[in-house]
Design a protein around this nucleic acid. Structure first.
Length: 479
RNA sequence: CGAGGUAUAGCGCAGUUUGGUAGCGCGCUUGGUUCGGGACCAAGAGGCCGUGAGUUCGAAUCUCGCUACCUCGACCA
């Protein structure tokens, strides 16, 4: 028997209209609202709570790997931007510039930071004198502004929140090692906290950061088969340190430019969570960043002892979990649907029957149909902890399975087009020429995502020109 | 920035063709009955119809401009 939908439809179908589904979900679950200025978003408490948890987890990892936090100014003299040629070219089209203070014209226009390489380099040039000052390992949590043409909440907005790490190193090897180390920190975080599998690899010349020698990325596959570049790490060599005249006196008595890296992830990660795990009912949040890990819903609240028992359970759980007791005067069914839409990983139902039996009913969000289980009240703490871990594992595995089943190995342009049009990534061989990359983009609308570290060939010839291939690379349509 | 679409109560919509001063559902408030998958009854509150001009005795409705949002493309975390 066909199962009638047992939840109320407030959002577009994820299968029928993915973009509309996304917009509906972010608005209706109150993650964000639109700001009054084009392309801006208000991150509402429920969305911001996710960001705070992301920050907490990442920040711990940055500290663990020896980095310190600092804060650099929002305003950057326009002239700084001009110092690194590729960098200006990359960012000039989308920077916001302040030219006036009140009625008075400023003597030099100020850029509202689109990224902070320039101002941080300027400061580093004052702070670094000796090899003893290296490595310099600084991260900042900040907002940045890029005047994008089209915008979508979390995925591309005029202003967004991120972290940017900026490091200086005495040796090239050490800087390269840092670049890859932080990429792996991102990947580990995405796996263990967000439950999102990432493709790690190096970006092509075309796709790399303006001013970098090499850019690496983590790429996640969304459920529409498109790629979301979720984080990047950059190796600069001495491009910026030379341009900004950062010099240190080495042991050998010679003045040298240090090697540099930068790396960042942004509130876009929240978009990745939404589009990796969401379903027909709405959000499905990974337990480790879910603002509410479990919600307690009293059933037949008016009956003797129910409210009291729920409050008691709430008190016993709140020390260990982000738990919420919803004793508002809505029907239980209404609340079930509400918290499913909001992606709360576990629901705890407690009614007269349960109290009589000394149990609670637990329903998990990540499994279709809820998979309700009864748990004795005195085991709730341990069982919930285990269940949240299980939910995390299941969400990761589900995302991984989806991803792996949407990667097609291809050897020519027709296969590539068919793969990406069908909502897949195409894994293929490439000669490394920009021309072929551009041509593929033109013919299929897919761009290179990245080159995996495992370069075991899956063919000999370039997917586009048919000449000898040198790189194994993923192509995909991207956000 | 190019193509298409939308804008009326918190949300979803009707009303626009044929101009006459706004309506439905949900939600919200109050009271009561309810409560194991979006309960029910009753009584209420809430909108100068995105915005600026124009046409007209009269504009949500017709004309032009602007803005925002959505979808699809070119660029980015």
């Amino acid at each position: 028997m066909a199962k009638e939908k047992e939840f109320v439809k407030e959002i577009a179908s994820i299968h029928e209209n993915f973009p509309q589904w996304y917009t509906d979900v972010v608005l209706k679950t109150q993650l964000v609202d639109y700001g009054p200025v084009k392309g801006t978003m208000v991150i509402r408490p429920y969305g911001y709570a996710i960001w705070e948890l992301i920050q907490k987890e990442l920040d711990a990892r940055f500290k663990e790997t020896g980095h310190e936090n600092a804060y650099f100014p929002l305003f950057i003299p326009y002239s700084y931007l001009l110092k690194e040629a590729e960098h200006v070219e990359g960012f000039a089209p989308e920077v916001a510039i302040v030219t006036k203070a009140g009625a008075a014209e400023l003597s030099e226009p100020l850029v509202v930071r689109p990224t902070s390489e320039t101002i941080i380099c300027e400061m580093y040039s004052k702070w670094v004198e000796s090899y003893r000052d290296l490595p310099m390992l600084i991260n900042q949590w900040a907002n940045v502004v890029r005047w994008e043409k089209t915008t979508r909440p979390f995925l591309r907005t005029s202003e967004f929140l991120w972290q940017e790490g900026h490091t200086l190193h005495a040796s090239e090897e050490e800087a390269q090692e840092e670049t890859l180390k932080m990429l792996h920190v991102y990947e580990e975080f995405a796996h263990n906290v967000l439950a999102i599998p990432m493709f790690m690899g190096q970006k092509s010349e075309k796709e790399k950061f303006a001013g970098a020698k090499a850019t690496y990325s983590i790429e996640a596959m969304m459920q529409d088969g498109k790629s979301l570049q979720s984080g990047t790490t950059h190796f600069f060599g001495t491009n910026f340190s030379a341009a900004f005249d950062i010099k240190y006196l080495d042991r050998d008595g010679k003045l040298k430019n240090p090697y540099q890296t930068s790396w960042g992830v942004s509130t876009r990660l929240i978009g990745a969570i939404i589009m990796s795990h969401g379903d027909e009912r709405g959000l499905c949040l990974p337990p480790r960043v879910a603002p509410i890990q479990a919600v307690i819903i009293p059933v037949a609240m008016h009956k003797a002892g129910v409210k009291e028992k729920c409050a008691e359970v709430f008190e016993s759980l709140k020390k260990n979990f982000r738990v919420k007791l919803d004793d508002r005067d809505y029907s239980p069914g209404w609340k079930f649907n509400e918290y499913e839409m909001k992606g709360v990983p576990v629901r705890i139902e407690i009614g007269p029957r349960d109290i009589e039996n000394g149990v609670a009913v637990l329903a998990r969000r990540d499994i279709e149909g809820g998979a309700k289980i009864q748990v004795p009240l005195d085991e709730l703490n341990q069982r919930l902890a285990a269940l949240l871990d299980e939910v995390h594992e299941n969400m990761y595995n589900k995302a991984l399975k989806f991803r792996d089943s949407h990667v097609k190995t291809v050897s020519n342009i027709d296969e590539l087009k068919e793969a990406v049009d069908g909502g897949n990534f195409a894994l293929t061989m490439w000669c490394g020429d920009r021309e072929c990359e551009d041509k593929v983009k033109e013919l299929t609308n897919a761009s290179t995502r990245n080159m995996p570290f495992d370069q075991t060939p899956c063919g000999d010839t370039c997917v586009c020109c048919g000449k000898k291939a040198t790189k194994k690379i993923y192509f995909g349509k991207a956000y």
